[in-house]
Amino acid sequence: MRDNVSSPVREFWERFTTNRFATAGLVVIVVLFLLSLAAALVTPYSPDTIDAWHVLLPPSASHWFGTDELGRDVFTRVVYGARVSLKVGFVAVGIAVVIGTVIGLFAGFYGGWVDSVLMRLVDIMLCFPTFFLILAVIAMLEPSIWYIMVIIGLTGWMGVARLVRAEVLSLKSRDFILAARVLGASDLRIIFRHILPNALSPVLVSATLGVAGAILTESALSFLGIGVQPPTPSWGNILTSGKDYIEFAWWLSLFPGVAILVTVLSYNLVGEGIRDALDPRRQ
């Protein structure tokens, strides 16, 4: 089994790359990632240098995306904002995936009352309009990017839990699990060594979509004034600061808006691509 590992990966990759939209999405994501890492190299400005005498200048050779309401370079802020927005996406989803996976694994593996209790918890959490919960908690705590990531994560794990549980239920009775049990493996070992790796693929898809959702949630929070706090740029708060000037300083909302749009779209396309590539029926 072990020496076969590289072949399914390659197979997956080949199938994934036949989907041109998904590949394009992946390219966008990678480029953005590199751009945000190399932010200081691609722009001569700092994201928080204010120039009160040059506010809201249209795009020009020296300011590719124009300047914002405090005379800061919008291109620089969008590039640095990518860091923050991507960080929010990844950390929030990381939290959601960990919680969801653990709950799904235990519920599916143990069944019985553990399953009932955990799945009722999922049902209850799913009843709340998630954005209401996020809003209630964040508005009451001190606003910080960490809280935002944690809260988005804490309110977004239910889908993952259901997916993992379903997967575990179908794996539980498979031969290799029964074999492991006969050989005396402990529950935890079976869960984490044998079941978890096999349940990961649906999680990967939902995580990819989750990153997109978290970026959007941050921008909605910024619109309401409780997103990432200034002067730290995030796409959400740059877009929000541009909304008052939508009619004449279009550059201030257009670039962060398009950045969000393209990124979220890319994550969705990649998520779809992964799902299709993993789908056994497509072989």
């Binding site: 928080d48 240098t49 204010i50 405090l70 606003p143 004034g225 706090q229 200034p230 002067p231």
Partner: peptide
């Protein structure tokens, strides 16, 4: 934000909370 930038130039660290 303008004050934050100016004070940083003389060595004062400022955070903003809204």
């Amino acid at each position: 934000q303008i004050i934050q930038m100016r004070l940083k130039k003389v060595g004062i660290d400022v955070k903003i909370r809204v």
